[in-house]
Amino acid sequence: MTTTVRTSSLLAISDLTVRFRLPDATVHAVTGIDVTVAPGELLAVVGESGCGKSVLAHALLGLLPANAAVTGTALLHGDGAPIDLLTADDKILARSVRGRRIGLVPQSPATALTPVRTGRRLLEETLRAHGRPRAEADTVAAGVGLTPADLDLYPHELSGGMAQRLATALALAPDPPLLLADEPTSGLDRPLVDATLDVLRQRCDNGAAVILITHDLAAAQRVADSVAVMYASRIVEHRPAAGFFAGPRHPYAHALLDALPDRAFAPIPGHPPMLTALPAGCAFAPRCPHAADDCGIQPGLHPDVACHHPIGDRP
């Protein structure tokens, strides 16, 4: 965050870059990400499918496939020395970071839940593994809107929305200071979307931090403190949510907001570039109405928008 002064940070990501080596090409999945997340902050990472936002989440959890090359640092602060999530030993990540210090709300909860145990068993096991009394299961479940009766069902007996809430409850059970939510609302209808988002918001209000990865701008607008827009593997704009939604400065962010049905409902012409063949300069330039000669040079994120001609600077 560059526009507000943070006294402490929970997660400091610096120059995070992820490449996938393919037999005939290199996928530039994530490029030069610098982001800091403070306790109590809800950061929404928005962008269209294939822009790299999910890879970012997987990199932070150390869950990338074998052909991925990761560079940069992602320091997770807490009690004691900070841990670099990108270089830490996988055993340490598995034992003391994933689940315990970083919770994950997965994209498709139906496949993430063990089918042979009831929600209660799953939740109680998670609570016990993290040294909390099993009796708290009902309280944790109630926090996400599940009744004690719902907990006694098996995953296949749950509707999509209930499965999502159970997955959220499991992620919350260890009370992690940082929660990663990867498209937690996909496939849910609006009341369930709002309920899930409110649970995330409440986490932040109680001092935890949440990174919400979503393509749903309305969801981001509802709960986010700050918004990072990703386009073609880079963050192109990163600002406090209120200012962003009132007046986006990057032409892509502006066009994306203008595409919302309650705004202009206007599509963006053209296609995003392939992550295997990114242009040398600004990746949005070929689709951008404000593009000029200098857009052939990659703009840096200065201070909060990566554009040579940000909206609001022109007469």
Binding site: E48, S49, S186, H215, L257, A259, F265, P267, I268
Partner: peptide
């Protein structure tokens, strides 16, 4: 268009 970003949603609708 539920799973798509706003820009693609607007395009499909158009």
């Amino acid at each position: 268009t539920t799973m798509l970003d706003a820009a693609t949603q607007a395009l499909i609708a158009t």
